[in-house]
Write a protein that binds this DNA or RNA. Sequence first.
DNA 1: ATTTCTATTTCGAAT
DNA 2: ATTCGAAGTAGAAAT
Lengths: 231, 231
Amino acid sequence: MRLVVAECSAHYTGRLSAHLPLARRLIVVKADGSVLLHSDGGSYKPLNWMSPPCAMATTAPDDVARERGVTAVWTVQHAKSDDRLEIELHEVFHDSAHELGVDPGLIKDGVEAHLQEMLAAQITLLGDGHTLVRREYMTAIGPVDILAKDPTGASVAIEIKRRGDIDGVEQLTRYLDLMNRDPLLAPVRGIFAAQEIKPQARVLATDRGIECLILDYDAMKGVDDVDSRLF
Amino acid sequence: MRLVVAECSAHYTGRLSAHLPLARRLIVVKADGSVLLHSDGGSYKPLNWMSPPCAMATTAPDDVARERGVTAVWTVQHAKSDDRLEIELHEVFHDSAHELGVDPGLIKDGVEAHLQEMLAAQITLLGDGHTLVRREYMTAIGPVDILAKDPTGASVAIEIKRRGDIDGVEQLTRYLDLMNRDPLLAPVRGIFAAQEIKPQARVLATDRGIECLILDYDAMKGVDDVDSRLF
DNA sequence: ATTTCTATTTCGAAT
DNA sequence: ATTCGAAGTAGAAAT
């Protein structure tokens, strides 16, 4: 990994064209050839970048560029597309190289799958008397997150999202349309369950007779932990 | 901006929990307090990070940690949420600070808006005899990208995307449902136009009687440039 | 300020 | 290898 702090400008052409005016920035050249151009603010997204696989060519500036104070030109070309990033370096304030080796990578936990597990284990959150039929109930157009039965024995299809927006309602609607054509299942009621449900999604769901359920991750996790401790 | 290359491990808790095992990495601390943890590969996304606004506290390791080779602990706490990133530093190979100043920012061009402009200007791409009614035709649930008329005088609603996927078809379907209830407009035909259309989206569109149109950005841009040159 | 939508999205899983 | 959905999405535009 090479770290360069320099006054520079940049030009990207590919999916779109973009220009970065002259300013002092951090340039990171990774071991795989990818390049990041970072300013001293914003978030983790660079101002400009080139993803691997790509290769960098360093050339001397032409006379016109040298007049403008350019000391070197880096052309980073993507290997598979015609994406290209051209960086004009002016004054260089820092330049160092470091051997980092391969990274073992990130280990995460706590996402949609976990919500599904916990709701399946705490199915009475739907109301007393509800029972779990199964998770990932398979239909012709894909798996429904949870299939349950309500106290009267009627089927309930549940779609789970971390953030409930309109797409999730559309998805559940397609499942319900299909499942309600199956005489062995029909009538199937729908529940849209998420940690947060956007107003537009709630309106659409309600309009289609789909119930909305807010999932409290921490509360469910608490119950889950208590359950685990009982063993 | 501070650049540190060090052997380190990290722990994030917030929207999820994640752990980063001990390895040599680049740590960037930006002027606004945000922190990025980069490995020597992958894409522009850091392995772990903290977005602004946030604050970093440096503490000495406890005895147990010092036994493990920890030389310092950085705790980065988000100012508005309870997101927290904890970095345990072991051996430090590089540590430097740089004044970068405010960045003028990126200037881009060539996106969906441009596709819409060009298609409006080259409306006969829909077929000879088509005429433009207007761009951003307003309906109760939002603006349709382009409203046109075909050679028979029938209305045509066009939804434009750079990448056409199932959501865009759903969106156009909602517009068509609504517009076809208006006796002054009905019948309204739909065209789904995009630089690329995913197979699933094409199937859904076709099933709903919506025509698919692939937009060739470069070809349209060429025509656009020629048009411009005529002035 | 809040919501919605796009992205040079990136990333991972499933097909 | 593709396709599809989720993201600690981030960032911009519209409300």
